[in-house]
């Protein structure tokens, strides 16, 4: 076997692998996206606006955005706190809590809905107690936020933990030797170093919350104009054979998700790089998240 032949077989193998990968991803991801884009174009921009402006659709979208926003804020706060506590403190039960963080990735979202409905519902002591306090969780906004919080819980924690662990003590010490006090050091050195991790967690939380369906369909029910979120609305439109309405709201949600992800890329781009990663011929593949870092 001479060198020329090996090169050829090698090149052929490479080509075959590449075709398989590109073909598979196209079939699985690109074609479905193209299908919904096509459906959306068929309707045209006028229809699109009309569809999402109907009272039912617009209220579903508004509710989804609002709940996702609240979820993101709570998740960012408690996620950051949890990540710091889990990384920096030694305490009984730390290992246990740390392992639990992955649980929302392992539990079916539908089961999440059932759990929240059970414990915060009108039949449980906690639910009754909350009800007396004037807080209705089930078939109400708090339930939606709780469901979203549960399924997005790992994002902030898991994207902050590695950054916090890798945070070089040396960088903070360098700032000290240059005369910076702990407060200045925290804001000028620590925060900028962990910011990309935090932003990744926060933005992914928002996107994930926007699309959540399984848990919310149980917890929130399907009351139009009141507890119907976008994904439930889309499901309803599909069930009632209205592909156009489903398409418009879907595309709207997809567009927001993509915009958020593009913004995330822009914000977490390594300093000094002008081009977004997906335009560059970079050696490093674009990786928005690595599941094990998050789940």
């Amino acid at each position: 076997m001479n060198g020329g032949q090996t090169m050829t077989t090698h090149a052929l193998l490479q080509l075959a692998l590449r075709s398989a990968a590109v073909g598979y991803v196209s079939l699985l991801i690109l074609f479905p996206l193209a299908a919904i884009a096509h459906q959306s174009f068929v309707g045209g921009i006028g229809h699109f606006i009309q569809d999402i402006a109907t009272p039912q659709a617009s209220s579903a979208l508004a509710l989804t955005l609002e709940a996702a926003f609240i979820t993101t804020v709570i998740n960012a706060l408690f996620g950051t706190l949890s990540a710091i506590v889990l990384v920096r403190y030694e305490f009984p039960g730390r290992w246990f809590l740390n392992a639990l963080v992955d649980l929302p990735f392992a539990i079916p979202t539908l089961v999440v809905g059932l759990m929240i409905a059970a414990i915060y519902g009108p039949t449980s002591i906690l639910g009754v107690w909350l009800q007396q306090g004037g807080v209705t969780v089930l078939y109400n906004k708090p339930g939606i936020v709780l469901a979203m919080l549960f399924v997005t819980m790992p994002f902030t924690i898991r994207s902050l933990q590695p950054v916090l662990m890798e945070l070089e003590r040396e960088q903070e010490e360098a700032a000290f030797t240059l005369g910076a006090n702990p407060w200045t050091t925290f804001w000028k050195v620590t925060v900028p170093s962990v910011l990309p991790g935090l932003l990744t967690g926060v933005f992914l939380t928002f996107v994930r919350a926007l699309g959540e369906f399984g848990s919310i369909v149980i917890v929130a029910g399907n009351i139009p104009m009141k507890t119907q979120v976008a994904s439930v609305y889309v499901y309803g439109e599909i069930e009632s054979y209205n592909p156009q309405g489903a398409t418009s709201v879907s595309v709207f949600i997809l567009l927001i998700s993509f915009l958020v992800l593009i913004l995330l890329e822009r914000l977490t781009r390594p300093p000094g790089e002008r081009m977004p990663r997906w335009f560059r011929w970079s050696k490093r593949p674009l990786s928005i998240i690595r599941p094990s870092e998050i789940g």
Partner: peptide, 27 residues
């Protein structure tokens, strides 16, 4: 198109399951 491929792979993370199913129905 390598980075494009890479971007596509992450997409399912950010697409609502209902919308994913709907896209298949359309396809």
């Amino acid at each position: 198109g390598r980075t494009m491929l890479s971007g596509l792979i992450d997409l399912p993370f950010s697409v609502s399951p209902v919308i994913a199913g709907f896209m298949l129905i359309l396809l």
